[in-house]
Design a protein around this nucleic acid. Sequence first.
DNA 1: GACTGGGCGCTTTTT
DNA 2: GCGCCCAGTC
Length: 677
Amino acid sequence: MSKFTAGLNPEQRAAVEATRGPLLVLAGAGTGKTRVITHRIAHMLAHGVPASSILAMTFTNKAAGEMKERIAKLAGRKRTEALTVGTFHAFCVKSLRQYGDRVGVRKAFGICDADDQLVAMKQALRELQIPETQIQPKTCLSRVSLLKNQLISAEQCAASSDDWEADIGRAYRRYDESLLASGLLDFDDLLLFMVRLLEDTRTLTEFQKRYKYLLIDEYQDTNGPQYEIVKRIGGKHRNVCVVGDDDQSIYGWRGADVTKILNFEQDFPEAKIVRLETNYRSTAEIIKGANAVIRNNKSRHEKALRAAAGTGDAIVTRKLRDEEMEALFVVQDILHRASEDREPLGEFAILFRTQVQPRLFELQLRQHYVPYNLVGGMSFFDRKEVRDILAFLRLVANPADELSLLRIINTPPRGIGATTVKNALAIAAKQRMPLSEVFARGIEFKELQPNAVREAARLIESLKSLQHLASGSGLVELVKRLVREVRYADEIKRCYSDAATRSKRWEAVNEIMNMAEIHAHHGSEADLTSFLEDVTLNANDDRDEEQTSKDRVTLMTLHSAKGLEFGQVYLVGMEEGILPHIRCIQDGDIDEERRLAYVGITRAKRRLTISYTASRARYGDRLNSLPSRFLYEMLGKKPPAQLIEKAGKALSAAVGGNGKKPAAKKKPPTRNRSKSR
DNA sequence: GACTGGGCGCTTTTT
DNA sequence: GCGCCCAGTC
């Protein structure tokens, strides 16, 4: 037994030792998945597999960081340096920076975030004269994202016989064109262009030569392009290890395709399968409840968790009069348990399905002076100042970036209103000239306000003059000069009269400078492009660290709870219409909701409390609520058929009967229908 | 630009 | 019922 298999259970050991050939590790919640992954890699390194031939991909930066850290601890930092461990997206960015020109991507491409995407999509819809009332930019974006994640092209979509869908396809194409013209890729494009890159035989061979061992974490979350990447690179040597849990697939709505993990054996018929079913996290009662719920899902890899820990308290289910009482009960119970069990507040979590639920809990927590963290919501990178400064920086790095230019063209105000922008865009289109050039040479065009345009030209000029600092060690200097150059301090003064707000806003600007400072001293590449890339790809990192580490009660959605664990968990709003959510009931997508419930239950180590109400305010009405079918399942009972029927009807009536006729609604085809075809 | 009124829509969210 | 976003107005 090697150093890296000692102390593992037989299944874990089997997974660690199966280093050659395809391997599917079905790792139930709390079964030591990360342990297996890290030990497996350490084991491979110890047996002479060169670190540079291993490619390990995850979905989040956090997971990648943890993996790297833990492997380094096991195998030594030096030995792990040459490993490639990172998110799919980071890997694609790196590869595209190197070979992007082979698929028509300029090497200095920028990555556009959700905000830029929205601007671009709005523009696309406007150009196509599709009114926003007909297709909402946000809806269109998420639809396009889903299409991209399913490897469906704009052309395919535009050819749809459904008018709505065909319009989406046209918007999709226009949107892509405008991003490409701006030298930008969105998150989905990173994966798509990587797939294209791997369609080139020469490049594919290079990648196959370099990466002989693949490891994919959270494989149940794999979407179309990610799957293609794995299949292509791993198709040759077939040392593909995928780890995941089909029962925890909760991102189907954004393109994750659970069939990929269900059908792994079809892609790799010689695959070995290891099931990790011993749960080291929760008490027997909690595991029993989790099993009882998930058992009801139809298509899944058959497995059941066994609790390694002994028995504990029974799962508590509690019915409350309404949502206010629910919040009060939970908060009082937390205080009670915290003192009774001498448990720090950091061990408590309140988990909910939707973002409207936490309000009342926050209120109660405040009233009881209980410190808490609400995970999610506004990020540092959503702040106006941060977005502004980053837009300026993007423009320095990539003058073609039209979206960033539009964002800051009148910030601080320099007299360029909507009309000037519209005219400038028209000129740019007519003359086939980059928008920045139109502004830079603005004086030549009599359609444009001379005074305003002179200011814009000056701005573009000064951004250009900062370009020489963009490479190498000038990064910090660049940010500082930029902030001064555009007089951002004055802008903050102008916008906010109150001193406290001003200093708070300025803090954000300072923080960017700090980040630049850190970045400049961190890696080998300290240039502007790599800084922007880092900021865009790691936008959420620092916060969740902070948000979970302190001794505070955690409030978060079931989705963000995946992968975490807490001593005591409160699963709230366990009602028909919330969990399972009404939309999923209507669409008949109950299985993913059941997995969500399963994820929630399995977060708890020692104690799980589930609450539901007798009545709840929804859409301005007060409705009688019904306990979730998952509650019945958990107790080993069949949910009464009439409950489900009744719940469906009552809720549909409430949603549809909210003053407007459902028939008056623009007819977006139901999600379900368009998704499955 | 700042303000205001009307209309709409109302799951989940990482990269 | 509430909040957000947009368009229109001054």
